[in-house]
């Protein structure tokens, strides 16, 4: 499902090149579950961004569901994300001006052609929110929800489009232990139900152990 070859990412920092990632090679099988672990500043989030096509690598290439991201334009990658990718962020990243239901509907409504959208998006949105236990809070705004509830809305949003790959950036990083566990259980359950490939960045060893595949980053390099 995902192939990364010789990935390298270098940023200019204060006029000097700063290599954040170098020579990363990895493959994730369809319906696989990859955990990226490592200390802060080791390049985990950068790698996730590159795999998801949020940024272009300085060198190397990423193939996502058979498509080489390299030659794709910014808009083409956006479309690819819309069709095949779901996201869960550490800071939830719900759109504060939209209700829970409207947040969930965004990826569906973003589909350019009506034919590509699920039938009756609103019903789909409600079902997803019910599935994450928020069926009664569809019209609440993010500010009216707790952290755990917000992340559950984010989960519902991530699965709205039946993505092939789900990227999660420290999904429990902003939650307390119990809430974090509940969110992870839900994430894994949804993932299994939807047969999605899951790529997850985490500090949480326990969570990492549930993955099929773990890569450890240190100083921008893979240490296996």
């Amino acid at each position: 499902m995902i192939i990364a070859e010789h990935l390298e990412q270098t940023y200019m920092s204060g006029g000097h090149p700063l290599t954040v990632l170098s020579d990363i090679n990895l493959t994730v099988e369809p319906q696989g579950f990859l955990a990226i672990v490592g200390p802060s500043g080791s390049g985990k989030t950068t790698l996730l961004g590159l795999l998801a096509g949020l940024d272009r690598p300085t060198a190397g290439r990423v193939v996502l569901d058979g498509e080489d991201l390299g030659p794709l334009t910014e808009d083409a990658r956006a479309r690819l994300r819309g069709e095949k990718v779901g996201f869960v962020f550490q800071t939830f990243q719900l759109i504060p001006t939209l209700t829970a239901l409207e947040n969930v509907l965004v990826p569906i409504e973003l589909r350019p052609r009506a034919a590509d959208r699920v039938e009756n998006p609103e019903q789909r949105g409600r079902e997803l929110l019910t599935r994450v236990g928020l069926g009664e809070r569809t019209h609440h705004y993010p500010a009216q929800l707790s952290g755990g509830e917000q992340q559950r809305v984010a989960l519902a949003r991530a699965f709205a489009n039946n993505p092939k790959v789900l990227f999660a950036d420290e999904p429990t990083g902003n939650l307390d232990g119990d809430t974090g566990h509940a969110v992870i259980d839900l994430l894994v359950a949804l993932n299994t139900e939807a047969r999605t490939t899951l790529v997850l960045v985490t500090h949480d060893q326990e969570l990492a152990q549930r993955a099929h595949q773990v890569v450890r980053l240190s100083g921008g390099k893979l240490v296996t």
Partner: peptide, 16 residues
């Protein structure tokens, strides 16, 4: 900016 970045993550094009 954050909302825009999230929308872009979720597949919205620049133009949209």
């Amino acid at each position: 900016l954050e909302t825009v970045a999230v929308l872009r993550c979720l597949g919205a094009t620049q133009r949209t």
